[in-house]
Design a protein around this nucleic acid. Structure first.
Length: 222
DNA sequence: AGCCTTTGACCAGCG
DNA sequence: TCGCTGGTCAAAGGC
């Protein structure tokens, strides 16, 4: 039986399709599932020798959220080859979400980081690298942040404390007592981080990545 | 020509 | 065995 992994992704603002994952897929079916408002879509890798598949199910209660179930892995090597493109796509999503508030954006990132096996965030200019391929985020000099054993959606279900943030960003994070919400904390951290120029943000993306942005699967269909 | 999406038909597992 | 359901096939048409 092929291993499966499940992710939850949010549509970009103003769109109603899931963001691309940097890999190419060919749709081979669509079916309305009992009890679901939206049809489930079936995709497989366009390379015949590759057994990778994925299913995309829009969630009725959260219409801008999609449950993506991956089956098998890309034996064609596509995942490795496109990892940088995937990161660019993630950054674009990050860029798009800025307008929705830093809190949401940060939560979104955490979701992506913890729910995507073998995914990583690697900013070579800052030396910041996040990875959950080995059950812990691979932060230099730190193994502080545990990886949940299951997808955290819709709630954060793993501990994320101030010391974690401090280690994550390499500097002190101000005490946010008085407002315990993760979003508020994330907003604070995000702001701090952005002010220090440690994020590769929208303007940089526009300059460098428009041509290399992954062409899309589900996300760009209309 | 080749690859894509769409969509109804078909198949297999399960109760 | 039968019917239901999820997953896949494959023909048709578009780009």
């Amino acid at each position: 039986m092929l291993a499966r992994r499940k992710e939850y992704v949010e549509a970009r603002p103003g769109e109603e399709v899931p963001p691309e994952d940097g890999l190419s897929w060919r749709k081979y079916g669509q079916k309305l599932i009992l009890g679901e408002k939206y049809p489930r879509e079936y995709y497989r890798c366009p390379r015949r020798c590759c057994e990778a598949t994925k299913m995309v199910q829009r969630i009725e209660t959260e219409p801008l959220t999609f449950e993506v179930t991956y089956g098998g892995s890309h034996s064609c090597g596509q995942e490795t080859k496109n990892q940088n493109e995937e990161l660019i796509a993630v950054q674009q999503t990050k860029c798009d979400e800025v307008g929705r508030g830093a809190g949401q954006i940060f939560e979104s990132y955490i979701h992506k980081m913890v729910s995507t096996p073998n995914n990583s965030y690697n900013n070579s200019s800052t030396g910041v690298e996040f990875s959950n391929s080995n059950s812990v985020f691979n932060i230099p000099n730190s193994d502080f942040i545990p990886t949940p054993t299951s997808s955290p959606h819709p709630d954060m279900d793993f501990p994320f404390d101030y010391s974690s943030f401090t280690h994550l960003f390499g500097q002190d994070v101000p005490d946010n007592s008085g407002n315990d919400s993760l979003a508020a904390l994330a907003a604070e951290v995000y702001k701090l981080y952005e002010e220090n120029g440690k994020l590769n943000f929208p303007h940089r993306y526009d300059k460098q990545a428009e041509n290399s942005r992954p062409s899309n699967n589900v996300g760009d269909q209309s």
